[in-house]
């Protein structure tokens, strides 16, 4: 059920460190609400098997997430998503900031006035939202 589809069909690129891509994946899942505060996450071995990555890489990713206080591991109990709302906010702003930067990077060369750009964004955003509400199937994620 939920657990299976959450980690299935993840395509990693081969030029960025895989462990950072795993960290990013967790951040995205947290931002979308797929991962809830305090939720138990798979063990390192389980996530390695699910994502078809090297267990050492999973280990490294979890260590990185622990350092960024994204997840917490207490003693022998399984790791959980943090309950720290501060972290959640920063993940959110980090992802949005990153996306906007990437977007600006790609439109910069086209030399479009800001007003026109914002209007376009507003219209597209509404369209996508409407689509999403009408047909739940459209994933619209690229």
């Amino acid at each position: 059920m939920r657990k299976g589809e959450l980690w299935a069909e993840v395509a990693f690129n081969s030029r960025d460190p895989v462990y950072l891509q795993v960290v990013r994946l967790f951040k995205e899942r947290i931002a979308t609400g797929d991962l809830q505060p305090g939720q138990v996450i798979p063990s390192r071995r389980e996530i390695a098997a699910a994502l078809k990555i090297n267990p050492n890489t999973a280990q490294k990713a979890y260590k990185e997430m622990e350092e960024q206080r994204l997840i917490v591991t207490e003693g022998n109990s399984p790791s959980r998503i943090t309950r720290d709302s501060e972290i959640f906010r920063s993940i959110r702003s980090e992802l949005i900031g990153g996306a906007v930067e990437a977007f600006l990077e790609s439109v910069r060369s086209i030399d479009v006035p800001l007003d026109e750009l914002l209007e376009l964004v507003r219209r597209k955003y509404a369209e996508v939202k409407a689509n999403k509400q009408s047909g739940q199937g459209g994933e619209g994620h690229d």
């Binding site: 030029r15 960025d16 460190p17 462990y19 890489t57 490294k60």
Partner: peptide, 12 residues
């Protein structure tokens, strides 16, 4: 992983 990290290159 280090080569991806430091040089942004894949093994290929």
């Amino acid at each position: 992983e280090r080569v991806r990290d430091e040089e942004g290159k894949s093994v290929v």
